[in-house]
């Protein structure tokens, strides 16, 4: 009888030690992992302001934001028309052009192919939008995926017009 109680207490002690020890190991490992996450100085680099006064219709510029290229395109009326008249049923990732470009003249997108992260080339491809040379994804004039392996449309970052000539990204 006493021996049984003895064994039980021993088991409890060992279980408690193992458990607390495992908690300690876990708590130690977290800082070692978290240190690789974006640090506070990187996270603080949230916004970039871009002067767009010099961009003519039908041309685009590429700026760097958070280490990624941002396409800013001043679209022609034709491009806007083409983009807004597409039937949503034809799209792999249905999105209205008016949802993607708040001001239809300006298209602001993260210039990173949603397939595997290459930078698509402008005014190329079967839909006269963008074409990714890596694995052949075709985007239309609204940056939507039309053909090829990319799963979704080019991403639209958070941005706003500070005034008529300045876009603030982020």
């Amino acid at each position: 009888m006493t021996k049984k109680i003895h064994t039980k207490r021993r088991d409890f002690l060992f279980t408690a030690t193992y458990t607390i020890g495992a908690v300690g190991v876990g708590a130690t490992i977290w800082p070692l992992i978290d240190q690789m996450n974006p640090d506070s100085s990187v996270k603080a680099l949230a916004t970039t302001e871009v002067d767009v006064s010099n961009i003519e219709p039908g041309t685009s510029i590429t700026v760097l934001w958070r280490g990624k290229p941002i396409f800013i395109r001043r679209r022609t009326q034709e491009e806007i028309k083409e983009a807004s008249e597409v039937d949503l049923k034809d799209l792999k990732h249905p999105e209205k052009d008016s949802d993607r470009a708040k001001n239809p003249e300006w298209l602001v997108m993260v210039g990173v192919c949603t397939h595997l992260g290459c930078v698509p080339l402008g005014e190329k491809g079967e839909y006269k939008g963008w074409f990714c040379p890596c694995h052949g994804s075709h985007y239309d004039t609204s940056g939507r995926i039309r053909k090829g392996p990319a799963p979704i449309n080019l991403e639209i970052p958070k941005y706003e017009f500070v005034d008529n000539n300045t876009i603030k990204i982020g």
């Binding site: 800082p31 070692l32 978290d34 240190q35 996450n37 640090d39 506070s40 100085s41």
Partner: peptide
Amino acid sequence: RDINYGWLI
């Protein structure tokens, strides 16, 4: 200053 838990490590 900036790295997560950098001071600790």
